[in-house]
Design a binder for these strands. Sequence first.
DNA 1: GGTAACTGGGTTTTT
DNA 2: CCCAGTTACC
Length: 667
Amino acid sequence: MFAWDEGLDDVQLAVATHGDDPLVVVAGAGTGKTRALTARVASLLDRGVSPDRVLLLTFTRRAADEMLTRAARLVGLRGEVRPNGGTFHAVAHRHVAAHAQVLGLPKGFGVLDPAGACDLMDLLRHEHQLTGNQARFPRTPTLVELYSRCINTAKPLRQLVPTDYPWCEPHTETIAGLFRDFTERKRRSSLADFDDLLLYWRALLEHEELGPHLADRFRYVLVDEYQDVNPLQVDIVRRLAPDGRGLTVVGDEAQAIYGFRGSAPRHLRELVDGCPDASTLCLERNFRSRQRILDLANVVRPTEEGAARIRLTSDRGDGPRPTLLRCYDAPSEARAVVDAVLEANVAGVPLRHQAVLVRAGHHSDLIEVELTVRKVPYRKYGGLRFFEAAHVKDFVAAARLLDNPSDEVAWYRVLRLHRSIGPTRARGLIETVQPDMADALVRWPELVAAAPPATRTALSASFGALNEARGLGAPGRRAEAVLAAVRPLLEGRYDDAPARLRDLDRLVGAATTVDDLPAWLAELTLDPPASSGDLAGPPHLDEDYVVVSTIHSAKGLEWPVVHLPHLVDGAVPSDMALSSPEGLEEERRLFYVAVTRARDELHLYAPLRLPHHRHARDDRHSFAPLSRFLDDEVQQTLDVQEEARPRSAVAAAGTARVVVELDALWS
DNA sequence: GGTAACTGGGTTTTT
DNA sequence: CCCAGTTACC
């Protein structure tokens, strides 16, 4: 037999060998839930369950790949037969693509990432003439965010705006009209944004005949990080496992940190309450952090009625107490963080074993400056990704047109790549092939005829080539032809075109191994791979680098040494979250997630003074209130130090503003 | 009407 | 830093 149970402790083993009744695993941070879930999948396969009857749902692609690959290896499965799995969105896309016709979508429908959704919203905004002197109408990304929040929280616009976007309230009716059109236009363009994938999947599962059939395909459904599901995903899981048989969910209410996209700690509780025959197993033995870190974590861990009363105990000994350094001001804090990173590095901790975690992206601004000035390589998580690079989007837009000529967002993007065609002309040209765009690519000469004479040669070349590419069979050949069509456009547009085209050559090379081009493009849109090119990376690309990340992006990850700067009220907890008690509770959970990322050392920092405004023109500072989460009880678990003033004037000059006084010359 | 360069303003977290 | 609007010039 296979050794999938090797090294599991009793509870993990119980998870792995549990029968078919619904199972809820409450897993504190770092307690080996991935290991338990992997073992459970392996154990199912070992019992003879067919891999295609198992479905594993996660929130990140990394988590899904890791578990499925390990499980398959543990039971010696060959490469081709793997259990089903992936992120909710990726699995949703697979099902929606397979049953597109039922949903009234063409096979080659496109997937809109948030930036694409912004492009479409922008188009509509112009059509609605909501541009120009309009008094403080929300910006396009805000609108897209708001739309998504309505879907994810299942709350009507009129309810959400007053509480979550009060400054948009005067425009509620206008926004409602815009949103109606946005939905309709996605339909007409055969496009689905990320949220639509979940809506469509749920619709399939609710379909009278098809739904039960789809649910029956999976005998075992396993869901990771269940505390992060939104109401849509709750429905999907319920439909996949209507009676709870074969359902396993793993989660921890104390780590629910995605309220803004509809997750809530109560979802886990409601699942337990709704399944009277469910068993609950608790993982409390922590394999990650040293006990002194867990002493802090156990005090920080929220104790509301719902959150399971877990006390994490370490398997790895005491270790040093976490430190709290109260710094003179924010620049001084930045220096202190980098000092500590380098100190640890000298003591033998590689940079890649250290992370700086912040509440909001901009909280690391000064630290990044300091890292750059002192030539410490770092990489910012959630920073520029391959697919956020403009040239890749250009290519993908062109490729999408082949299978879905109704894709207005793709047309808009490709048209604007041409010299002398900006937003206005692009919109106008799209109108010439509307309303029926099904054969718009074949009718490209009409579009060219409507364009200004100076642009016609270039337009003919691009769209003629794209139309030709449509006829090619193999995805690899089509991708090649698309690249050939846009190559001259990119060369004319970007100063660094050669590097960008190298990126795209690699991408096109990868397309030769796929059998469905639109599906491949969609997958890449859902899970943008990090660029290996020299475009997207930060200035230093050495192998060893410090990770700078938001706490959200750090979920599920760990580092031997973790630095948590900016622990002041307003940042942690975020002042944006303070208007409601639930908001504050979520901020505490976020802090809990942050401290439990550390294996050996944890360093907390709080500046004593902050500028009055983020972009202050003057140098006025106010005293910063220490994070309310660092109360007396918490401080008992810490080594607290106070830094009275910047330690060295020379170091201070590193980031200080230098002002040369010239007034004397004119007086 | 397009484009580039500049100005003023601004609520956070992501698949 | 990023977006949207404005201005000057083609």
